[in-house]
Simulated scan of single mutants.
Amino acid sequence: MRKLSTQLIHHPYKPPAGFEALPPAVHKASTVIFPSVHALRSQEWKDKSGYTYGLHGTPTTFTLEERIATIEGGRYCVLAPSGLSAVSLVDMAFLRQGDELLIPDNAYGPGKAFAAGELAGWGITHRYYDSQNPADLARKISPATRLVWLEAPGSITLEYPDIPALVDVVRAANAGRERAIVTVLDNTWGAGIAFNAFDLGVDVSMQALTKYPSGGADVLMGSVVTRDEALHQQVLLCHMRLGLNVGANDAELVLRGLPSMALRYHAQDVTTRQLATWMAQQPGVSQVFHPALPSSPGHATWQRDATAAACLFSAAFDERFSQVQIDAFCDRLALFKLGWSWAGPISLCAPYNMPSIRTKPWPHRGGLVRFAVGLEAPDDLQADLAQALQALTD
């Protein structure tokens, strides 16, 4: 008879089949057991027809990938450990030494830093273009251009670009090219709810699942979604060679957040529009940036292409206020906590020094604060803003 330690590892009991519940099962594994040598040699993971190693997918991660692809309107999805790792994955999958990358000047800052750091060190150049001006993108495209990032709306200042017009510029430049330029959209803000990225013409859609799909401010994850199988295979194989993976418990948290995502998105949208509209009317505020406001850059394009507007707005303050005063305004807020990220249950704010993070001259001389609206009662959030503004303007 086998010893107890062996029996505990090689126990013969298997639970009966047929168990079904609302939440998907959480499968944790590094090693995957095969029934035979033939299965070990022939099992395929790239098309989700089987399992080979925990790094290459489990029923839990495959389920999450399929659901994210559905939300985005795509066919294929790859998961990454964070939104930034998803950005880096796309860059590494499609760029080679001697290639050029074009990035909106108002793109996510850490993605720009990756281009200026690692990509530049690998012999990949980058330039910035004005996302509000398709003609500027057309002027910047060169024979070396291989990847164009899009972001809707822009990071922090929320300018809404004409995605179809930018995509048309790239398609025109692709005529006669042996190696086509790929367009990729940071779709974290839209989340597959405000618009369908692929219907607007992009090749690849990337998200930080940390934000809306999770919704709990308790997990980091990213995704890369495509409709084109060849592009997906480029991303998937790069993903495999980099050894990227997400934990089963993190995948579980995102799966748990998905059923309520649309409800949370629209609830935060309603509150954010109320607060952005109110904030734009306050003394000491020179402009509020939010795509649903007629005064915000790209409003007409947002109105044409999108159906919702997420949880972010930013306020540019009058130039008479110093950065010290604006920082004190943020410190006075009680419900808006100081912190990065957004789309969680708690409202957040953060001050930014815009001239230091843009190559294009920033037109506002005053400071700027970005607000991320949570799930608190709208009137309570407005009262919090009012008391901090009162102290600022007194």
Rank of each mutant, 00 (worst) to 15 (best):
M1A: 12
I9S: 13
A17R: 09
A25T: 11
T31Q: 04
D47I: 13
H56T: 00
H56P: 00
G57L: 04
R67T: 01
I68Y: 03
R75C: 09
G83N: 05
L101W: 05
A107R: 07
A135F: 01
A138M: 01
R139W: 00
P143W: 11
P143Y: 09
A144K: 12
S155K: 06
T157K: 10
L158K: 06
L158R: 05
E159G: 08
A173I: 09
R179G: 00
V182N: 01
T183P: 00
V184M: 02
L185Q: 04
T188F: 06
G190C: 03
S205T: 07
D218W: 04
V219I: 14
L237N: 10
G247E: 07
A248E: 09
L253G: 04
V254I: 14
L255I: 05
S260E: 02
M261V: 01
Q268T: 02
Q274E: 10
T277E: 08
T277W: 04
M279T: 10
P291Y: 04
C311P: 01
A315R: 07
F317E: 05
D318F: 10
D318S: 13
F321T: 15
Q325W: 13
L333G: 14
A343S: 11
L348E: 12
A350F: 15
M354T: 14
R358K: 15
G367T: 12
A372R: 02
D380M: 06
L381M: 11
L392I: 14
T393L: 09
